[in-house]
Design a protein around this nucleic acid. Sequence first.
DNA 1: GCTTATGGATACTGATACTATCCATGACAG
DNA 2: CTGTCATGGATAGTATCAGTATCCATAAGC
Lengths: 210, 210
Amino acid sequence: MRIGELSKATDVPVPTIKYYLREGLLPAGELSSPNQASYGDTHVRRLRLIRALVELAGVPVATVKEILESLDADTEPLHEQIGRAHRALTPTRRLSATEEARDAATAQVTKLIHDRGWTVEPSAPALATLIDTVAAFRALGQENLIAHLDAYADSVERFTRFEIDAVTANPTRDQLAESVVIGTILGETLIASLRLLAQESISADRWKNR
Amino acid sequence: MRIGELSKATDVPVPTIKYYLREGLLPAGELSSPNQASYGDTHVRRLRLIRALVELAGVPVATVKEILESLDADTEPLHEQIGRAHRALTPTRRLSATEEARDAATAQVTKLIHDRGWTVEPSAPALATLIDTVAAFRALGQENLIAHLDAYADSVERFTRFEIDAVTANPTRDQLAESVVIGTILGETLIASLRLLAQESISADRWKNR
DNA sequence: GCTTATGGATACTGATACTATCCATGACAG
DNA sequence: CTGTCATGGATAGTATCAGTATCCATAAGC
């Protein structure tokens, strides 16, 4: 398969494929002559994965590269790969809240994690984001929305459980790792859109005239 | 309050505040003389809201502007404002999938919505994203992950319900509208980080040695 | 009166994700 | 075997986004 065919198969423009090759997201094709390379099925799949992460999930290209490198390095422990996927989903956005809001948020989140018996590293990127977010809700006068934080956590824990069950069903470690990455990242898009649809549906009849 | 004090109160640099003023995200202060304006508490709150949306939720500045305009136009029906917040969360990313994957995804999503009795407009932006995402899962060989789509929807519907209950508790329409926007947008960040923490915790003991 | 901050305008920056152009070579059709 | 087209590789250009930086005339506040 040559680059033009790869482009047609995946609906990605040739210059974009060249860009991904340059950036090292896509392995080079096998050179049969100085200006002729052939690409295979792995390239098609890899390219589809890249597009899904970039286009659907909005992951930065540089991060996709990191994730793919980690996927290819099958020596890396699985939790390292998960950590990488997690970092891909939590850009280093920090928000300085008022001290009270931040303290209250930290306390609430710490309590939540303790009560649920979760094992979470203090350095987990999502932890900081969660605290910031809870603090933001407070700072914006939306205490009532996060009063049910535990109920949120309950539902979230529910689907996370069978998510992990489904992923664990993979026979090989490589497949498992790939499932983890896809599940973690695309799963967020999935849940987000389900939530919006649920919101639209539930709110429709309740507020028809407000 | 002058711009310098506003900056200190919110921890946003003066040039950034000026930028938001230019872009129309923040209403101009009251001019007491050609080069002296005073800002009040509304500015502090508005600025905090802007930062939360931009920094935490990653909403583009142009979209924040739209949302705020919609919030200020209290003549606009509530479901219009919800739609706007939804559009803020679903950037127009489209992914061309294979036809089979796309058809299968459409069928699965249509069935889901029907089975759950959801009322969803066919033009809902989240609907397209959901179909694309499900199709991407298929195209990437992760059918097993979306086999439980209904279970996902179940959990999602659960927290969406009390989310809407919490928001409905607001006395005035203005407060309701603001809660809807904040809840919809920051809620996504909240759920996403909760999910990552749950994943980390649940997966830790399961895959310690893989 | 002197330093500092301000409003307003305009210009510049850095990051990101592509696109476009060029060129020498090679594949393939007729 | 020859003319057209695609390709690999390199380099340069573009659009968007979210600020920053600079300037200036004016005004606060000590």
